[in-house]
Nucleic acid binder design. Structure first.
Lengths: 153, 153
DNA sequence: CGCAACTCAATTGCGCACAACTAAATAGCT
DNA sequence: AGCTATTTAGTTGTGCGCAATTGAGTTGCG
């Protein structure tokens, strides 16, 4: 069934299905955000701030640019976010001496310590999704393909 | 392989996998947003505004509350958004006479006409995802389950 | 050297998302 | 009727996301 040539899906269904998928993605993203908000409240981090900390915990000090590349965020988002992390005492911003355009982000001791408190968060989130590891893999694979395809369009 | 009792997935992998899934969702949502931004530019709509118009096109005039329920958005988001749609001449806001707390949103003739221009959008988006109908169904099913589970947590 | 092109971070402006709160109206209960 | 609780929009404040712009700094080329 459903040969390689387009199967007989009527316009009306396509329309509804598309609506559901794009909306589902939007809704799922916000639902995740809500649960992360709770899970991260104790750490004083928002979800995007947590993503930045994950990058720093995993790969250490690095300039704003490479953080943005990994998270797909630009300086308009990262600059104020990093200043808030700096105000919270978690990171230090240091203008590079070799290339004065570049600002390197370092973890402070507080920022490094926070890692331990963050360790139980992923397992808690995994449980909250109600999915099996297999399903998570499937989901991640599909999302990755969608994102790549959309980025090229 | 992978019995019902937790399979031997080390913490480190769990951590990375979780990171990837939540991040993938975040990234996919923003990637979708970017492509919708282009697709909807000609209509003068943002993606959330498009969602509101879809609800109105499908189900007609209705109060703010029911729009919010369908889109999972509260009045803090919808009130200013609807005012922008009103400024654009696409909707009319009318306080109900029977229950003066309620504001009913109506499509204007312009708002109704816009539907035709929006018809090609879904097919364009579907193509941009690069997924088959089957994969979209799988994706939507997983996202729906995740959202339900997360909403309860 | 001197000038043009590029890079990188920051800033500005707009819109979305959500929490907390306000205000007005309705419903329910005594 | 009178009082309380609930419902419904709206407002305010904070933070994310992105486009467009600015400005400092670097690189490359003649």
């Amino acid at each position: 069934m459903t040969p390689a040539t387009r199967p007989p899906v009527p316009d009306a269904e396509l329309l509804r299905l598309d609506h559901q998928v794009c909306f589902s993605l939007h809704a799922a993203s916000r639902a995740f955000g809500g649960v992360y908000r709770d899970a991260l409240k104790g750490l004083g981090l928002t979800y995007p701030q947590y993503l930045v900390m994950l990058v720093l915990w995993e790969h250490g000090s690095q300039p704003v640019k490479t953080i943005g590349e990994q998270l797909r965020l630009d300086s308009g988002t990262l600059s104020p976010l990093l200043k808030r992390l700096e105000s919270a005492g978690l990171v230090r911003r240091e203008r590079s001496t070799e290339d004065e355009r570049s600002v390197t982000i370092h973890l402070t001791p507080s920022g490094d310590e926070l890692r331990e408190q963050a360790l139980p968060v992923p397992r808690r989130m995994l449980a909250a999704t109600g999915l099996t590891i297999e399903e998570l893999r499937t989901l991640q694979s599909l999302l990755g393909r969608v994102t790549s395809a959309l980025d090229e369009a």
